[in-house]
Amino acid sequence: MAASKAPPLRLLAQDAEDLAIISAAVQDAVVKLGDISYEPKARRLTLAFNRYRWEAGGERVRSGLQLGGVLNVKSRKLKRGVKDAVVEILAVTFEPGDEAPGGCIVFSFAGDADLKAEVECVDAVLADVSEPWPTPRTPAHEV
């Protein structure tokens, strides 16, 4: 199967509605825990993953998602010491905080795990960084 001609994604989110579009694009992406990096001094959280290209179907692409203005990061049910452990992203959502425009960006993973980034505001960038490659498996979810 030849790679599609769909252009690489380059998305910017500056509010919860924008983040919902990024969430749809990264649904079913698989990420190694070692490819999640939080840089406190730079106030930046970066995830690198293999994204299923729903817009092209039948292929994956290497992508990165970076959040700016990150104040703190907390995880639940993620084995942080196991760098090769792979998790699947189900959704990325924004929970408003006490003072707008701040709040938490929540990454929900399969297996009831999550990662919460406390942010000053929604400042997220998603970019495809490789050529896509075919995959025989289309992600599926139980109803």
Rank of each mutant, 00 (worst) to 15 (best):
90 L>A: 10
68 G>T: 05
113 A>V: 04
62 R>D: 11
78 L>D: 05
128 D>Q: 10
62 R>H: 11
94 F>Q: 01
44 R>N: 04
42 A>Q: 14
56 A>T: 09
116 K>Q: 13
19 L>E: 02
31 V>F: 00
80 R>S: 12
105 I>Y: 02
121 C>M: 12
92 V>K: 01
11 L>R: 11
91 A>P: 07
9 L>N: 06
55 E>H: 12
116 K>S: 15
78 L>T: 05
97 G>A: 07
92 V>S: 01
115 L>P: 03
48 A>T: 13
131 E>S: 14
36 I>V: 14
101 P>V: 05
69 G>R: 07
98 D>L: 14
17 E>M: 06
74 K>W: 00
81 G>P: 00
76 R>E: 14
33 L>N: 01
71 L>P: 04
119 V>A: 10
47 L>C: 12
22 I>M: 03
77 K>W: 00
63 S>A: 15
23 S>W: 02
26 V>G: 02
132 P>K: 09
78 L>E: 03
103 G>E: 04
104 C>W: 02
132 P>W: 04
127 A>M: 12
91 A>S: 15
132 P>V: 09
89 I>S: 01
15 D>I: 03
47 L>R: 04
92 V>A: 00
43 R>H: 11
103 G>W: 02
119 V>K: 05
43 R>M: 13
86 V>F: 00
88 E>G: 07
82 V>I: 08
60 R>T: 12
41 K>E: 15
87 V>Y: 05
75 S>A: 15
17 E>L: 13
58 G>R: 08
88 E>T: 15
108 S>C: 02
40 P>W: 12
93 T>K: 09
89 I>M: 10
7 P>L: 11
13 A>R: 03
92 V>P: 02
55 E>A: 11
23 S>H: 03
107 F>T: 02
113 A>W: 00
52 Y>F: 15
102 G>Q: 06
126 L>Q: 04
37 S>Q: 13
60 R>A: 07
77 K>T: 02
63 S>P: 03
12 L>K: 13
30 V>D: 08
54 W>A: 09
92 V>N: 01
52 Y>L: 04
12 L>T: 15
87 V>L: 09
59 E>P: 00
111 G>L: 07
90 L>C: 08
99 E>W: 08
93 T>L: 10
38 Y>R: 05
112 D>E: 14
121 C>P: 03
35 D>E: 15
42 A>L: 14
111 G>Q: 08
106 V>K: 08
91 A>Y: 08
114 D>K: 13
19 L>R: 02
22 I>N: 00
51 R>A: 05
88 E>Y: 05
38 Y>Q: 04
53 R>E: 11
110 A>K: 12
44 R>F: 01
108 S>H: 13
10 R>Q: 14
78 L>N: 04
14 Q>M: 10
10 R>T: 11
90 L>K: 12
118 E>Q: 15
39 E>M: 08
48 A>K: 15
31 V>E: 00
102 G>M: 09
64 G>I: 09
95 E>G: 04
26 V>T: 08
32 K>V: 01
73 V>A: 04
